[in-house]
Structure formats: C-alpha cells, structure tokens
C-alpha cells in the first residue's frame, strides 16, 4: 500500500479512535457467543424474575447484567446479539459493495448507453422509500434469517458506492498507464481488474466502512419495528424494542443494547470518515 496513505491514516486521530472502537466491536462479535455465560434463549424464571419483573445488574450471582422480561440472561443476549448484528451488517455491506463496485466499474468503463441505463437504475433505487420497501418485503416474503435480512439491506443500499466507483473508474480510465495497457492490446476485464480496480479499492473500502454503520442502524431499525430477526433470536435492535415497555422499571435493559449500537455505529462512522479523507473518496 502507498506509504503516504498509511502515514495520512496514522495522523488522523478520528480514524485511529474509530479503528480502536471497530476492533473492540469486531472482537466482541467474534468471541461474544463463546464467552457468553449462558445460552441466549435460556430462561431463568425463578432467578431472574421477581413478580414478573426482571432483576437488574449485579443483583444475582452469575448474571452480571441481570435478566430481561422473560428471565433470560442479559449479558449473554448482548454477547450473542453482537455476532448477529455485526454479521448481518458485514454481510449486507459485502453484498452492497459487490453490486455497487461491479455496477460502477462497468458503468464508468463502458460509458455510453450502458452507463446511462445503469445510472437510471441507481436513481430508481436511490429514490425508493427504503424502510417501507424493506418492511413490506420482509413481511411478504416471510423470511427473517440472517442471510435474507442481509441480502435485503444490501440490495437496497449499493447506490452511493456505484456512483463513487463510477467516478473513480472514469478518472482511472484516463490515466496514462491504463491507456498504455489498452494500447498493448489488453482486453476490458484485465484492464478493469489489474489497472482500474486498485484505484477504486481504497475509496470503496472507505465508503464500505461507513456503510457498515448504516447497516447496523438499518438492521436495528427493522428489528425495532418487529420486521427484522424474529424471536427468540437476540439482535441489539430487537432487544431494544422488547425492553421498551419496561423502561420505567429497568432502564438498563434499554441502555446496554443502545450503548452497544451507538459504540458500533460511532466507531464505523469515525473510521469511515477518516478513511474517506485518507483515500479522498468524496464525490
């Protein structure tokens, strides 16, 4: 990698802070289910419920953060939720990046009619009422697995990447060594992958990082409204939604998933903004 990029990154304090938060969150998602003390759906009705209300943090031994409205161990649910929320966000981002970069590369490289058609497609997807379409699609296709939710989110949010990839591709196409490659008789695919893609990769990575933050938000929003992962699966958004009625009695049930969502989103946003400056990925 270009040493200038690395040194620019090192000097960007926001990006470094973001990278630290992101590492923490990714680690949580990786090891969370392994270090969780209990299964996420196991109920401890006698231990963690008092007259139907959950007990709070530090009130019971072996249940550091107390229980939820069904007597399930809160800490275990948060840790299991970490993997679910983060895998959905990462998978959805991967899908969006794949579609966005492909569309952008083809569009920017070929130009002309293909470019026009693909950019109209971008306009269309961009002006879909995201949340509404996602809700209706989730409900009517009646699927709520990790794969389905990720695909749904990915398919609806690749547009910004397509635009920036297209712009970067058009810039790269005019570079001398790309022209040289063309003059040497290399064909489209080779030029695209060997010469154009490396120019696009950095900005795409930056936008992708920002996108993870948005995916976390979108997944939690869907879960919050009851159209995401279905119970008893624990994602941070669904935990937030389930705890709302208990707000007055046990605010920590809301506080912890909220905090984790905010840390995750904040981390990915900081890192993404930093990377965007580093890679100069603004439109």
């Amino acid at each position: 990698m270009d040493p200038r990029v690395i040194s620019r990154f090192r000097r960007n304090r926001g990006a470094l802070a973001g990278a630290a938060l992101v590492s923490f969150v990714l680690l949580l998602g990786l090891v969370g289910p392994w270090i969780a003390p209990h299964p996420p759906a196991k109920q401890f009705r006698t231990e963690l419920l008092e007259q139907g209300l959950p007990v709070g943090p530090l009130e019971r031994e072996g249940h550091l953060l107390g229980g939820d409205q069904l007597g399930r161990d809160q800490l275990s649910r948060l840790l299991h939720g970490a993997r679910l929320s983060i895998s959905i966000a990462l998978l959805a981002t991967a899908i969006a990046v794949f579609i966005g970069v492909s569309v952008g590369l083809v569009s920017g490289y070929l130009g002309g009619f293909v470019d026009g058609a693909l950019m109209r497609l971008v306009d269309i997807v961009l002006s879909l009422p995201f949340l509404l379409i996602a809700i209706v699609a989730q409900k009517s296709l009646d699927a709520s697995g990790v794969l389905f939710i990720s695909t749904l989110l990915g398919v609806l949010s690749w547009t910004s990447l397509a635009r920036i990839t297209r712009a970067k591709t058009m810039q790269a196409r005019a570079l001398e060594y790309v022209e040289a490659a063309r003059a040497l008789g290399f064909r489209g695919p080779r030029i695209l992958f060997r010469h154009v893609l490396p120019n696009v990769a950095g900005p795409a990575f930056a936008i992708g990082t920002l996108m993870v933050a948005n995916m976390i938000l979108a997944e939690s929003a869907l879960s919050f409204l009851g159209f995401g992962l279905q119970p008893p699966a624990a994602s941070w958004g669904s935990m937030l939604s389930e705890s709302q009625t208990l707000m007055e009695w046990q605010p920590t049930l809301t506080l912890f998933p909220a905090l984790l969502i905010v840390i995750t989103v904040f981390g990915f946003n900081l890192l993404g903004e930093g990377l965007r400056d580093v890679f100069d990925a603004r439109l």
């Binding site: 707000m247 007055e248 946003n269």
Partner: peptide, 22 residues
C-alpha cells in the same frame, strides 16, 4: 455531529422519554 449521525432515533427516543418524561 459525529455523535449525532451515530445516534439512531430508537436509541435517543427511549432515552429521552426516560430522562425528560419519566
């Protein structure tokens, strides 16, 4: 502003209710 774009309404909403209403 970074914090603001990272705070979804379903986080700030319940918290605001808790603090300012309850």
């Amino acid at each position: 502003t970074y914090l603001g774009t990272s705070l979804p309404t379903y986080v700030t909403g319940p918290l605001a209710l808790l603090v300012f209403a309850y």
